[in-house]
Simulated scan of single mutants.
Amino acid sequence: MHEKQTLISPKLVKYGKQTLRYAVLIYLAFIFFMPFFWMVTTALKGRDVIFINPPQWIPNPAHWENFAEIFKRMPMFSYVRNTLIISLLPVLGQLFSAPMIAYSLTKVPWKGAKYAFPIILATMMIPWQVTQIPMFATWAKLGLVNTFVPLTLPSFFGWAYYIYLTRQFVKGLPDSVIEAARIDGAGELRILYTIVYPMCKPVLTTIAVLVFMGCWNDLNGPLLFLQRSEKYTLSIGLQMFLTGTQNEWDLLMAASALFTLPLVIIFFLAQKQILGGISTTSGLK
């Protein structure tokens, strides 16, 4: 007597795996999206319905005037201007310095390259809490406290993490193209700006987005070096609003939404470049 064996179709197995995969991704996306959704909906609620039980997921009616109230309570335009200054200048600084340092460490033959790179990586192990006091003392002696210089100038000398990312990408560029340019008489700077920079577009886009997001979110640096209110950034303004308000969660969530929205837009517009740049520098496929 032969037992009947039921065979599951390979297409059915593949379809089941894909369905399970998408279900898990949708569930995780829902978990990560919920805090942002709750922040936006709370910003549109009246103060009397924020903590009701069961919670009101969709505000009815929507109080758009909460966002207008934020502009009355905070000098938003001044905060945005200052935040853009300390966010865009470091982007330019990293795009200028990181490829130059990475190119010199990988494609320019000199004896100190193999010693310089480990030293650069070693600086990543020093916590910010260890260096903030001597850094403040140095900038104070230079008379540059309460200016944007301490928050922007160091980026033009390169940050270790972005030098590492760029080095990993430049290291994979073909040496034949660079050697051909040298044979044709091109100098190192011309090779850097006409050959290396265009080929590094994926990793440079990643660096630009990461630097901008990091500086936009930064609170420690502006809080340490900026002392006058006209120099304050969005992060300081949001922190002051948090400590100054009492049970005004609707206004606090409105301010947080305005602070977060640019980062969300930038990330969604550049997510492919970010993932592509990280994958090419880390070796992931």
Rank of each mutant, 00 (worst) to 15 (best):
V145S: 04
D250R: 02
L84Q: 03
L25N: 02
L210F: 14
I70V: 15
W110Y: 13
E188A: 09
Y27C: 14
T194Y: 12
I120D: 01
I236H: 08
F77D: 10
M39V: 14
M135W: 11
L261N: 03
F117N: 08
A137R: 14
L223H: 04
F212Y: 00
K111V: 13
L269T: 10
F212A: 01
Y232G: 01
H63N: 12
G244Y: 07
T41P: 11
E179S: 10
H2T: 08
L258K: 07
V108F: 10
V196S: 02
S155E: 01
M199K: 11
E69D: 13
M135S: 15
T194H: 11
W128S: 12
T233L: 00
R73H: 02
Y103E: 00
V264G: 05
P174F: 01
W159L: 10
L142Q: 03
N82P: 09
N60S: 15
A43C: 01
Y115L: 15
T166S: 11
F136T: 07
I26D: 05
G172T: 12
P10L: 04
W128M: 11
L192C: 04
V203G: 01
K141L: 07
V145K: 00
L210D: 01
G277S: 07
K171N: 11
S87T: 09
I133Q: 02
L44P: 05
S256N: 09
G283E: 07
V149D: 06
L234R: 06
I101N: 04
V264N: 00
F51A: 05
R190P: 09
I50A: 06
K114Q: 10
F241G: 04
I50H: 03
H63M: 09
V108E: 04
W249N: 05
L25K: 07
P198N: 04
Q94D: 05
G185Q: 01
N53P: 03
S9I: 01
A186L: 12
I265E: 00
L242H: 13
T194W: 11
W110V: 10
N220K: 10
K114A: 12
A180S: 14
F241Q: 09
L284D: 06
I265P: 05
W57F: 15
L189F: 15
Q227G: 13
M39P: 08
E69C: 08
L92D: 07
L284R: 02
T83P: 07
A140T: 08
W64L: 08
E179P: 10
Q273Y: 15
I31E: 06
T138I: 14
T206Q: 08
I278V: 15
A62V: 14
M100S: 12
L25C: 10
I274N: 03
I163T: 10
L275W: 08
A43R: 00
Y232N: 04
L204K: 07
I191T: 13
G93E: 02
G187F: 06
W139G: 10
L28E: 02
K201S: 00
A113H: 09
N53M: 14
F32T: 13
V80D: 02
Y193A: 00
K272A: 08
K141V: 06
S235P: 11
S176H: 13
